[in-house]
Design a protein around this nucleic acid. Structure first.
Lengths: 129, 129
DNA sequence: ATTGACTCTACAGTAACTGTAGACTTTAAA
DNA sequence: TTTAAAGTCTACAGTTACTGTAGAGTCAAT
């Protein structure tokens, strides 16, 4: 199949597929005479793996590591666990940061009510301190 | 004061200060004969305003809007409230997304235990589906 | 033969910085 | 007074994960 079909099949844009190839996440595959990329079902699987990882916010560099690991089936998979654990911690941290942020924004928001002018705006006053 | 002193005073890097100036968040100020930037206390206040906004994850473009508003002290400040409200909603949304992500990661993590090899790793199997 | 849809490469743009190179200025010590 | 270190200057590249664009070539159907 050509790139457009792969794109539809995986709900991934054509540019993104080419980008993943350029970044070494998808192998360079064979082309037809007109230089069009030709994919098989293996490519579909590989792209879906990447998409699945991305939906979990795993970075391209981490995905590359996972792909490398997949290619060494007899290696211990501890590194996979470590990677997922580390990622989990990052997500936790970000949630905590955002919650604190929300608290601050709530406090800020209470400083002003509608119908004032800028020079009396409690929010701007607060931000200026 | 020169840029290094301003940087120390505001805990903001020298490069970042120059970047904010280039982006129009800090006014271009006077220079000495050797072309070094010379700041006064007003600049300190303006930079702290920006830093305060950034600590609330307000984007540079939004900060620019807030600065514009500050420069029209008799305007209604409704736009400030709207901006903060919108920002608040974005933070809320991101927290919800991250919580869902965390749930997925938790499920994923349970698929594998230590001491396995890659080809039996439940996490990689799951990600490959 | 032609048209329209598809694909190709290469490059610019996004956000908010950070890092680097190479030149110039200032400040303090020798 | 010289010199060396520290600070500053501009301009540009790099970061992340794409997205958008230009201009040219290819394919499929009419």
């Amino acid at each position: 199949m050509k790139i457009g079909e792969l794109a539809k099949l995986t709900a991934c844009s054509v540019q993104t597929i080419r980008y993943y190839e350029k970044e070494g996440l998808l192998r360079s595959i064979k082309r037809n005479e007109g230089n069009f990329r030709l994919y098989d079902t293996r490519a579909v699987k590989e792209l879906l793996f990447i998409k699945h990882c991305r939906s979990l916010d795993i970075s391209l560099s981490e995905i590359r590591q996972l792909i490398d690991l997949k290619n060494s089936p007899e290696t211990t998979c501890n590194n996979v666990n470590i990677l997922v654990d580390r990622h989990n911690k990052q997500v936790d941290l970000r949630i905590r940061e955002l919650k604190e942020l929300k608290k601050q924004l709530k406090i800020l928001r209470r400083k002003c009510t509608a119908g004032r002018v800028v020079k009396d705006c409690g929010i701007l006053l607060e931000l200026s301190q």
